[in-house]
Design a protein around this nucleic acid. Sequence first.
DNA 1: GAAATAAAGCGAAACGTTTCTGCTTTTAAT
DNA 2: ATTAAAAGCAGAAACGTTTCGCTTTATTTC
Lengths: 337, 337
Amino acid sequence: MESTIKDIKRETGLALSTISKYLNGGNVRPENKKKIDDAVRKLDYHPNEMARGLITKKTRTIGFLLYDISGTFAGILTHHVGTLLRQRGYGMIICDSSNDKSVEEQNVKFLADKKVDGLLVVPVSSDDTFLEPIKKANIPIVTIDRKITGTQLDCVTIDNEEAAKNAVEYLIERGHERIAAIYSEEYTGKQRRDGYRKAMRSAGITISGEYEYHERLHSVSLGYNGMQKFLKLPKKSQPTAIFMSNYEVALGVVMAINEAGISCPEDISLVGFDELTLTLVMKPKMTLMVQPMESIANEAVRILMSKLQNENSAALQRVLLYASLNEGDSVRDLRKR
Amino acid sequence: MESTIKDIKRETGLALSTISKYLNGGNVRPENKKKIDDAVRKLDYHPNEMARGLITKKTRTIGFLLYDISGTFAGILTHHVGTLLRQRGYGMIICDSSNDKSVEEQNVKFLADKKVDGLLVVPVSSDDTFLEPIKKANIPIVTIDRKITGTQLDCVTIDNEEAAKNAVEYLIERGHERIAAIYSEEYTGKQRRDGYRKAMRSAGITISGEYEYHERLHSVSLGYNGMQKFLKLPKKSQPTAIFMSNYEVALGVVMAINEAGISCPEDISLVGFDELTLTLVMKPKMTLMVQPMESIANEAVRILMSKLQNENSAALQRVLLYASLNEGDSVRDLRKR
DNA sequence: GAAATAAAGCGAAACGTTTCTGCTTTTAAT
DNA sequence: ATTAAAAGCAGAAACGTTTCGCTTTATTTC
């Protein structure tokens, strides 16, 4: 049915090895080049990746293991990563762990069985034991967005702590002191919480326990619940500003304040994370720490490709990117007046 | 390095064919069963999928081709589909077409070269010519969410027209006549527009051209822009209710009305589509046509699997699911008062 | 124009499975 | 105990490539 390299052989009269060599970028005589090209076109020949892979031990497939694909950050990241990989001829097998460590563990085994050439991972677990099957097979791994403990892995992250610190300092500079924070207990959530605390501490502001709200995962309801809680505090001790550690959280917060009839920035100032779909059209324009999504995808794919091409490039590559503050109108300057 | 079936042979003293048979579910003597099991465990043997695939001509991989993965609907669908496929031992190669027909065309070729066993597709194009490479290879295809013209394909869709019609009828029943609609020019957008028009027509309400707003793609800004436009109409002729054809559109509309200081349902009634992250926490709870996301994924995977197992099940399977109206508090009953 | 060097071509072996064919052993039935 | 049927087994071929070592052809240099 499908034509094979043997059909090309029959058509051209050349040896298998010659044809194969040319097809893989080798040199052949111009006349043979033409013969092969013509035959390929005529027979609509496509090399069988499996036969090829059997020898080269390469599937030209990358595993993309991520905590959960349904969120907006994950969706956009996946979009970029997938496109970059495809441009390089690599397929991407996605495994979504539903934010569950045991699912994640199974997924690693699954991807190891699928013999992916490399693994990109935005992990659920915070230590590296679950990666054992992939490590044992000596498959390169690059983690994205979240670091994990254990033996050091190549990774691409942003400086979350610094970003959060900058965001909160931006609030402090404008006279805010009663600043609350909403974050998750995931890696990025905790990092951003630390940045928040750091900024507060170095400004000499003590953080009231009431001003921190957290749940296990980043979600719209996390933001919504957190804001609800803050609004229940006595008027006098309500925060004047909220630091929100993620896009979905910001959605929840905005819902809560709209519902309560409170307006931003008059009554409450907001600083968030990630300029994604909704934050692009929101009014007032929100002040945000913007992550360089495309660069994150780019770097991750670049590192992985370098490992794939250069087996010897064993040097650890840990790229740290920075989020930039995108000033909007969601923060009131309390000094003026 | 990796252990092969030959190592199992050496370890057990059995023939390759016997081992292979057992590993593929065949019967062997109990003693041999044990021998093989032990050897597999001891050597940590995992069959080489490529060698296997070379013979069976199966990759145990499904292509998932979709218009764009960054949206919420796509993310959630992908989550479900991926999980179902993985449970059945299938990997899923995702190709995101960036809402671009020519990218989509390339992706089909890419997936054909990857020799996927089946294809699930939420297409950009509205006709089937781009699927040629997959069809030629005789690979089963199931379209999801959007139908395409050309030779009939298996598909899973919801009755968008009916759903939209029901949503708009719900508004009409509550005394609304000045009902506006915001939709995209994509398949689902147009279907839902048709449902809107149908409901209006059969209620004998003529639709003012000013009451329809559309852009090429569903997006937050589509909703935002649409609502902005309606708000610019003279007070007297402003719509009392909006039918929004998609989740992102609803976000945009809500942003626009919040910004304009208009409240729902007092000043404006809203009916939307899809109960996703944000609509889950919004107040007032939005009245929504809810698509059975999990069933959509389930049916699509079920159909595809049936085609894979039963080559002869050539019968066309076109599943039509229904969205259900989930009543919230976003619609004002104009009859009371 | 011959010798030396480089480039291109060739055939066979290999990759790790499954499957086919014919043979042997076990089980069941008489 | 004998026979027939069923089940299990071994060896070999096949799947469609790449790669290795060797031979042939082309190119350069004196």
